[in-house]
Design a protein around this nucleic acid. Sequence first.
DNA 1: TTGTACGCGTTATCAG
DNA 2: CTGATAACGCGTACAA
Lengths: 328, 328
Amino acid sequence: MATIKDVAKLAGVSISTVSLTLNQHPNVSPETRKKVWKAARELQYQPNGIAKDLKSVRTKTVGLVLSDLSGPFYSELIRGIQEVTTANGYDLVAMSAIGGSGSPARYIREKRTDGMIILAHDIDSHLISQAGREKFPIMVLDRKLESDHVFSVTVDNRKGAYEAGEHLIRSGYRKIAYLAGPNDSTDNAERFAGFKEAMESHGLEVTPKWYIQGGFTKQGGYRAVKLLAAQHILPEAFFAGNDEMAMGAMEALTELGIRVPADVAVVGFDDIELAAYMRPPLTTVRQPMFDMGYTAATLLFRLLDGDRSVRSVVLDTELIVRESCGSK
Amino acid sequence: MATIKDVAKLAGVSISTVSLTLNQHPNVSPETRKKVWKAARELQYQPNGIAKDLKSVRTKTVGLVLSDLSGPFYSELIRGIQEVTTANGYDLVAMSAIGGSGSPARYIREKRTDGMIILAHDIDSHLISQAGREKFPIMVLDRKLESDHVFSVTVDNRKGAYEAGEHLIRSGYRKIAYLAGPNDSTDNAERFAGFKEAMESHGLEVTPKWYIQGGFTKQGGYRAVKLLAAQHILPEAFFAGNDEMAMGAMEALTELGIRVPADVAVVGFDDIELAAYMRPPLTTVRQPMFDMGYTAATLLFRLLDGDRSVRSVVLDTELIVRESCGSK
DNA sequence: TTGTACGCGTTATCAG
DNA sequence: CTGATAACGCGTACAA
């Protein structure tokens, strides 16, 4: 790999002249300019980005940490973020927090980017809080967190879940099971709280036997239903903490010959793209993923600009009634 | 941000002592060791990854360039890659080639990673070829490309398209339109070639009026069908260059009151997750995305190890017959 | 066992 | 207009 030094030598000028030329600085004579370009081309010179970053402190990059890069519903989120980052002339690099979250944690600590957007519950809040600095703002999307340089963009999970729960209740269902996400997930906690609230405000009770762990995965939802079916206790409806579990649940139900929504209703949470294509189409709570991404990125840049008025944001969800809840 | 210097000062030792200690070097007295750790903790010292990379040349990171990070069918691919990278103790960072591909191109040229996996037709082959070096191997997944340090993992598009085309023909369809992807896409070219071959080997002709541009997007497929319908020329079947276009096409067809497959059959290519959930479920050609990712990453690491026996790989597709082609 | 000094590839400052 | 030279933060011979 040719360095700036090689170019300087070949062109017969000094390193600084090369740098000036290549960076479009005006104070370079046309002749030298030509010599330098020629040498650079011959050597196929490409500036070393790492060295550049080391010097300039700014990497012109924002990082995005996802708990699993291959997740289904990040598309819109990423689009929202990207819209803003490219508009600001920044790059976006994404990495996943898979496998003990070792690597992104390192990335965060080592600050290879100018800022971070995090949506990965397996990254420690403590780590995040102390990683945020004046020149390294962080936006979190999966929990509420706020310190000097860390803010959150979240969704009103509680309210969303309340609405969905109430819709189910109003439709006549009373024995409703909750398919839960991981216990360390704030999203899950809030959604459950909202659901519970809806139940209680209608004089209904949420019994522990109907709080079933599904780990936010399709498999988990599938297993949960099979487990219940094996015990011959099935609720009238399932409230899934996310769409993936709802999908798994519906699959299991179908296999068991139980019709949705005729026999059992199902609602989900997230409104992933697939939701509209399930059979029957899934009633769910829509998270404005694009808006979240857009908002998070916008705030991040304001933070980068030293704007002290930035505050955390909570966005609203929207209940999307389709067919799986039997009320349409 | 505290630097190694600050730690040295606070601990009352030299910079190198700090470095030695923190890097687990044995030759440091227990006392000094303690002093250093204490100072480091107090200052919340974190080594600057950028500086480290500059020195050590290895970044322990592989980059993944996608034409659009938010694309639908990358999940499996990423899982396959990640499996291998984490096993090798490497990080994976992904970036998209959106917006003129300026940024990833920069990333590639500037070599901020130890290697690259590219699936983005908007990145110039020429750029890729000359970026690959001894210590910077590149794997491309969306075209055939092979030079000293660049290899490809592709799928037998031609064969896959041939099979799907033949299946359609065997099912009795004769007037078949091809929904095309971008003209600069090798995938598209090969798929079309395979389709054409199937047609011709059955004495059928492919007329230009039935090669319709859909740009590999859902919207494009939708528009293509509407356009044809407006001219009152509809084929008996659509062969879509990818599933997204097939999805758009089916949507348009449905809107027009045309039944799939009763009135018009549709087949796609890729087998994205959604394919099985469309109505009717889409007959398509499955690309082994996980395997592609896994293979690409594996070869990349072999290249990184200096293995000279690495060659490009072509994987097989599989025809997935569902209902949209009317033969089930 | 510890410290000094240099290099990694750039950019920026400041003379000349 | 051009060229030394000093940083950036770290690792590491080599010397002490």
